[in-house]
């Protein structure tokens, strides 16, 4: 099935990378920490280092959760678009192969949210 229409039906996607003024969208979800209601939607420079993403951006985003202080990003498990993935912390997001609208999942074994409720 596709769009049945009364005329030609072609439109450019609204969220092309070119529309973000040099930034890329990156989504990061933290498994078993549903206190944050959905993955974070971030607009980040491709030149940003991966460790900077973790320590500056993510740690601040996650700060309200009591588990955050115990998170060791380098010992965490990562999924990129649901596939197992290993980041290079010294490299940029671009060099890590992170593309516009990619989705990272952060897994922190042993940290299971508030009272182990996955919250």
């Amino acid at each position: 099935m596709t769009v049945n229409s009364i005329g030609p039906y072609e439109f450019p996607p609204l969220d092309l990378e070119a529309n973000f003024h040099g930034n890329r969208l990156l989504y990061v979800g933290w498994d078993r920490h549903l206190m944050f209601c959905s993955p974070f939607a971030l607009a980040v420079s491709p030149a940003m280092g991966f460790s900077e993403l973790c320590e500056q951006v993510l740690r601040a985003a996650m700060a309200a959760h009591p588990d955050t202080a115990k998170v060791d990003f380098s010992a965490s498990v990562w999924l990129l678009n649901d596939e197992p993935w290993t980041p290079d912390f010294a490299a940029s997001l671009d060099a890590n192969g992170l593309r516009h609208k990619d989705m990272l999942r952060l897994q922190t074994p042993g940290l299971n949210g508030l009272g182990n409720s996955a919250s």
């Binding site: 206190m35 974070f40 309200a64 409720s117 919250s119």
Partner: peptide, 24 residues
């Protein structure tokens, strides 16, 4: 319940939780 109780406790401490990022 755990999540809501935690948020209430935070609020009582004067640290009412707001998510400072934007959602997917």
């Amino acid at each position: 319940r755990e999540r809501f109780t935690f948020w209430r406790e935070q609020q009582e401490k004067g640290e009412r939780f707001y998510n400072n990022t934007l959602p997917q």
